[in-house]
């Protein structure tokens, strides 16, 4: 769930308010957005990808709120790490071009593939 809007980093662009699919944030008068409906957060990490200044933190825990420490997150390089991974932001290489899905079947554990009825086991390729 979303746990942090860093008041220090936020430039109040309200992009997170605009893009959150489940309407978790509210704008405020002349201030940083607030996490208004945390329980509606679907833990999709998308707001982090859109925030231009890495001011947001989505915790991996979907069903429980946790305490987070901004300084620690920043020190460990976690703030903004998802945006970096997908290659958004100036001067970064987009993830699509780095996608390693082409190689994934080659490294499957050696076992007969009995794929019928098992979702996601086999990529449909040409």
């Amino acid at each position: 769930m979303i746990e942090l809007v860093s008041a220090e980093r936020c430039i109040q662009c309200n992009l997170c308010v605009k893009v959150c699919p489940t309407n978790v944030f509210d704008k405020t008068e002349g201030g940083v957005p607030v996490i208004k409906r945390q329980e509606d957060c679907q833990t999709c990490f998308i707001c982090e990808a859109y925030c231009p200044v890495d001011a947001l933190y989505v915790s991996p825990f979907t069903d429980e709120a946790v305490q987070v420490d901004e300084e620690e997150l920043a020190a460990k390089g976690i703030l903004g790490s998802w945006r970096e991974t997908i290659g958004w932001g100036p001067g970064r290489q987009k993830l699509a071009a780095l996608d390693q899905t082409p190689f994934i079947d080659r490294i499957l554990p050696p076992r007969p593939v009995r794929a019928a009825g098992i979702s996601d086991v086999k990529v449909q390729t040409s």
Partner: peptide, 10 residues
Amino acid sequence: FKAHLQGPEY
């Protein structure tokens, strides 16, 4: 390799 699309990009 055209079989997979990265969602945010797409």
